[in-house]
Nucleic acid binder design. Structure first.
Lengths: 336, 336
DNA sequence: ATAACGCATGACAACGCTAACATAACTGAT
DNA sequence: ATCAGTTATGTTAGCGTTGTCATGCGTTAT
């Protein structure tokens, strides 16, 4: 156990008295090597503590088992759940996840390097890749899955939901609950937030309850503190506000806290609806209504999609809509 | 842009009319190649869209730029902050992060494979590696940094804090605030939680305020819902409870929600202290006292430690104590 | 002017593995 | 008994890069 990485395929082959390629095959396609040799080879591997050299394998075969994940894991908690699904799905496979910082993606270098390293697949967050990034992804030498949102123009494959439809559903639901002065808050007006706003607007314009003054966004990432600030600003700007749709549960939680601090009666005087249906929001002192998104499944299925493609599945532009679900809780239970 | 990964080092060399090795050097050690050649080479790289083959590089050089991260990212939100630090720190370097599922680590296969792939470094969560995992890490062919906790027996390097001391400090602080029936809650009684309990016990036994009945743990991971349940159980088992130290802010938040649901006056009748000082807990309607841990720095510094070692820094067992800080807020402001 | 030196560049041989083809060993049908 | 048709195993030739050592050249010290 002194020296690491000493034994090579050839050593194992010598030990088991077979050829190197046979050992290679025994490792990768156990069923095409005879029982007897397999046993000898396994013993030799065990004895020598052989571990395959992935670099050599990659160089010789032209591929790797690395799946890239380009997602804002550190700024959007929702992606942690997707990661959980991904990890669960790759656990029984030889695949491995490599992180690509999306905030660096614009420069393209990290992504370019990754794509040049014979990746097995790539999972990217959202649908807002543009310019160089989009070009690189479109020409990626591996399956690419966009997760979270779906749209008409997949780079390759997609799985998630329509944020616009979800926000529209939420706005519709708030109206049903009896709220007539609904507002909208997002951490930042990202393209994704804009699609949610569009859905919100679509629903509220039908009922004539949309007001530009009840739309609020700031800078930064979804966070409880920011949610509190946004609600405060919103109430200053539009005191008539009687409900708010938040693009993320963290914001909703912050809004709830702020409302209570201000002595505003939730849900009677103010309804609050979050997004993503996270555990924390659901078990707040006053449970938050939210839009459930199936993030774990996005993760597991995104990996399946990559693996299927690697296994030779047809290369059609596959788009899976996992939909959403409104989960009504106390924060929008407006009394009649 | 049709075919990907076409150009090779030799192609670039031919284009620039130099030898392959010169191109290789221009890429890796720009300063030892003459100005003139460098320009020619850069132009050729640009023209051919050359991207280095990482597999070939790894095979030839015997190393890679991959740093492994074995941490419970998906179950312990605190590690997300460490990841943020890590990503920030590697951004200007060619290094890359590969995830290793710690829940799979027991089997050793994933870790063994990783260690066999000539890694540049490895960052692992916590100090509770045992058995095969610990052996593998101890013999890892790369720098290893344990993050979050520190102890006397580093595998290689460590950065973080003493959970025991932190919990001791928290318990001491609660006593100072006037609480005399303090309790302790952890999601699960992990070894780490046990060290926190030891610290808590150390502090409370000094003041004669320790009670086994006021210690509560369950199964599962830190979560708001679980915190609520734990507090409820704790109150059933030990109704005299007048303060609680939670091993994670999520639990503390749940405890706060539960206390309020039960009409318990926080902080007058019940003090609550969390751990990690997360954004959500700090901006709860009633701000939670917590123990600040410097997670971002753990990430940035862990990477620095790896890089320093790679750059040839001495191989001493380096242990960095980032300490902790009690952040008093409303949830423990017991009136006199 | 010559030797000795440093610096920039090049030739060559691995690095450990797998694809592709080749061959041997076996099966059953004729 | 012979042959085609399967397997099961072996041989050969790289994959694209870098380490090592060798070479050529301009420079400084003698």
């Amino acid at each position: 156990m002194a020296k690491v990485q000493k034994a090579t395929l050839a050593d194992v082959a010598a030990e088991a008295d077979v050829s190197a390629i046979t050992v290679s095959r025994a490792l990768r396609k156990p069923d095409i090597v005879s029982q007897a040799l397999h046993a000898r080879i396994d013993a030799a591997i065990q004895k020598l503590g052989y571990v395959p050299d992935l670099a050599a394998r990659a160089l010789a075969s032209g591929r790797t088992d690395v799946i890239g994940l380009m997602a804002p894991l550190t700024t959007e908690p929702a992606y942690t759940d997707i990661l959980r699904g991904i990890m669960a799905s790759i656990a029984p496979t030889p695949h491995v996840i490599q992180l690509i910082d999306p905030s660096q993606a614009g420069e393209g270098t990290a992504l370019r390097t990754f794509l040049g390293s014979k990746p097995a697949g790539l999972i990217v967050a959202g649908i807002d890749q543009v310019g160089t990034t989009r070009d690189l992804l479109a020409n990626a030498p591996c399956p690419v899955v966009q997760v979270m949102e779906i749209a008409e123009d997949p780079i390759d494959m997609m799985i998630g939901l329509s944020l616009q439809e979800a926000a529209q559903g939420a706005a519709h639901y708030l109206h049903e609950q009896g709220y007539r002065k609904p507002g909208f808050m997002a951490a930042r007006m990202t393209p994704a937030a804009n699609r949610q706003l569009r859905g919100f607007r679509l629903a509220t314009e039908v009922t004539g309850t949309f007001s530009e003054a009840r739309v609020m966004a700031s800078e930064g990432h979804p966070a409880v503190t920011l949610g509190a600030k946004l609600l405060a600003d919103l109430l200053t700007q539009a005191p008539e506000l009687d409900a708010v749709f938040c693009t993320d549960d963290a914001l909703a939680l912050g809004a709830l806290f702020e409302a209570r601090r201000q002595g505003i009666d939730v849900p009677a005087a103010l309804g609050i609806c979050g997004f993503h249906d996270t555990e924390a929001a659901a078990s707040a002192e006053l449970a938050l209504t939210s839009i459930r998104t199936r993030r774990y499944e996005m993760g597991t299925d995104a990996v399946e999609m990559v693996l299927d493609r690697l296994a030779g599945a047809p290369k059609g532009r596959k788009v899976i809509d996992l939909g959403f679900e409104i989960v009504p809780r106390a924060s929008t239970a407006k009394p009649a």
